[in-house]
Structure formats: C-alpha cells, structure tokens
Deep mutational scan, measured.
Amino acid sequence: NKFNKELGWATWEIFNLPNLNGVQVKAFIDSLRDDPSQSANLLAEAKKLNDAQA
C-alpha cells in the first residue's frame, strides 16, 4: 500500500544521510515505524538535521 512504499523510501533515504549518527538514524526509523503516515515530515526533519550537521 501507499504507506509501505513511502515508509520504505523514507527509511532508505534516512539510512543514506551521511551526517546522521547511528542513534539519530535509529530514532528517525523508530518514529517512521510508529507512524508511517508521517514519513514525509520525518524525512524532511532528518534532512534538516543532516544539513545542520554537515
């Protein structure tokens, strides 16, 4: 379904953000699993944090 596809894509993108540490990645992935409907918002937050830590 739509959420599974978005969840998978967001998970892959978060895993590939180079400036996040393992704890941050795990926290974002756990949040995605808790509420897949928020995948776009969580991915945006992860990208912002990644950019801030560059």
Rank of each mutant, 00 (worst) to 15 (best):
K47C: 06
F3H: 12
L7D: 08
A52Q: 12
D51G: 07
N19Q: 03
N41Y: 13
L42H: 02
D30P: 00
D51H: 07
A40V: 10
Q38S: 13
I14V: 06
T11L: 15
K48I: 12
N4G: 09
G22F: 13
T11G: 08
S37C: 05
L7Q: 07
Q53K: 04
N41S: 13
D30L: 08
D35G: 02
L43S: 02
G22T: 12
L17K: 01
Q38M: 08
K5S: 15
A46M: 07
S37K: 07
S37V: 04
V23I: 14
E6W: 10
A46P: 01
K2W: 14
F28R: 00
L17D: 00
K47I: 11
N4A: 06
N16W: 05
P36M: 05
N19P: 00
Q24R: 00
L43W: 05
F15D: 03
R33W: 14
E13F: 14
I14P: 02
L32G: 00
V23W: 14
V25T: 03
K48F: 12
A52T: 09
N16Y: 07
F28P: 00
N50R: 00
A52F: 13
A46N: 00
E6P: 06
A27I: 08
I29C: 03
V23T: 10
D30T: 10
L17Y: 04
K48S: 09
K5A: 14
P18E: 09
G22H: 14
G8N: 13
N4D: 15
A10H: 09
A44H: 11
V25M: 05
S37T: 07
K2D: 14
A54D: 07
K26G: 04
K48C: 05
N50S: 10
E45N: 03
D30I: 14
Q53T: 05
W12L: 09
D51N: 08
W12N: 13
W12P: 03
S31W: 13
D30M: 11
D51Y: 08
L32K: 00
L43Y: 07
F3Q: 09
L42Q: 02
K5M: 10
P18H: 07
F15E: 11
N21T: 15
A46C: 03
D30F: 04
I14D: 03
L17R: 00
N50V: 01
L17Q: 02
L17F: 08
L42N: 01
R33M: 15
D30W: 05
E45S: 06
A27T: 11
D30Q: 14
I14M: 06
S31H: 10
A52I: 11
F28C: 02
A40S: 10
E6L: 14
R33E: 07
F28M: 02
L43K: 01
A52D: 08
I29E: 02
Q53R: 04
L7F: 11
N21K: 06
N1H: 11
P36H: 02
Q53C: 05
D34P: 02
K26A: 06
G22M: 15
W9R: 07
F28V: 01
F15A: 14
A44K: 11
E6I: 09
D34W: 06
E6S: 06
K48R: 14
N50M: 01
G8Y: 15
W12I: 10
N16A: 08
P36G: 02
N50L: 01
L49K: 03
